[in-house]
Design a protein around this nucleic acid. Structure first.
Lengths: 166, 166
DNA sequence: TTAAATTTTCAAAACTTTTTGAAAATTTAA
DNA sequence: TTAAATTTTCAAAAAGTTTTGAAAATTTAA
């Protein structure tokens, strides 16, 4: 396999994986492009390498910054903005976990709290209440587990335990 | 909040959450409908409650069975098929993890192995090789961590540790 | 068998998401 | 200032995904 074939395969595979997890194909592809680039890239570079429009490149680069997994790099004497990816895969995973928790888990918990105020009798209500209680328990545990992992770097036990995994 | 409002809110919230994770809205909605139903439901019930077509209901029920998170229930003397959801939320999560691992992590690892055979010199190849090595390390760890959790029930340490989370 | 009940299939339609590209806005060098 | 370079916006178009609904296939009761 040549370098170009390898790069193409990575961009494809990462784009596919992303879209299966609700991240747009292009966003994932820009991410792996930056992750495997030895130098920061400009919007133009990204447009050219992925053959996408300026608007698309710009929008997805901004979104990636919003997720906190790439950053702008300013170069002295250069007008253009360069972008580079966070290289620590563990940090990227934790950053994504943190964002998804905030954007998804927290709204879900709010709905579950709302729904648990339903009152009344009968098997329908009993079953719904039970299901909501279980989902809340699970969501709260996931929430806490994520917090623990996110804070692992500041935490001796988990910090050392998780080092094994990195 | 009334029972009907609660049910509606749950169906909406679960559908939205699912679609953010690459699971179709309808599939998630059928899942929560079965999860909160005191009795198994037929295809007709699902069609009526979610106001969807027969084809749609049938296809998504089959997919949910494929994910291993709902099952057919046959009732003596009844011709129709009934469906019920797995009630243990932890089991559902592990089942989804197992399937996603098989469907996504394993293909990704295959691509990474392929790409790591790229040879040559220069900063591009060096960076790509490095990135691929890190991704492999991460994917393998995620793979093993999932295996550990999936097997938690057969494993004393994790079994006891994880009981706290359930 | 036959035929009624039920489930499955799949091409076309509806809907959703992503992308384009050109115009507007912003930034900075001179 | 002015104007060139660069980034951002956004309506329309393209692409992708999901849904419909009617026909075909399958199952089972009689």
């Amino acid at each position: 396999m040549t370098y170009d074939e390898g790069k193409e395969a990575l961009v494809q595979a990462w784009g596919t994986l992303g879209s299966q997890w609700g991240i747009s194909r292009t966003m994932s592809q820009i991410h792996i492009l930056l992750l495997t680039s030895p130098e920061p890239l400009t919007t133009e570079d990204v447009m050219e390498q992925l053959q996408i429009s300026r608007g698309n490149a710009n929008m997805n680069l901004r979104d990636l910054i919003g997720w906190g997994i790439i950053r702008k790099v300013l170069r002295a004497g250069e007008r253009k903005e360069y972008f580079e990816a966070e290289r620590d895969v563990w940090k990227v995973a934790m950053q994504v976990a943190r964002e998804r928790k905030r954007r998804e888990l927290e709204p879900l918990l709010a709905v579950l709290d709302q729904v648990s105020t339903v009152e009344g009798e009968g098997p329908e209500i009993a079953r719904m209440t039970e299901a909501v209680r279980d989902l809340k328990k699970f969501a709260n545990n996931a929430d806490r587990l994520l917090d623990t992992m996110i804070k692992a770097e500041e935490n001796w036990f988990w910090g050392n335990f998780l080092k094994v995994l990195r």
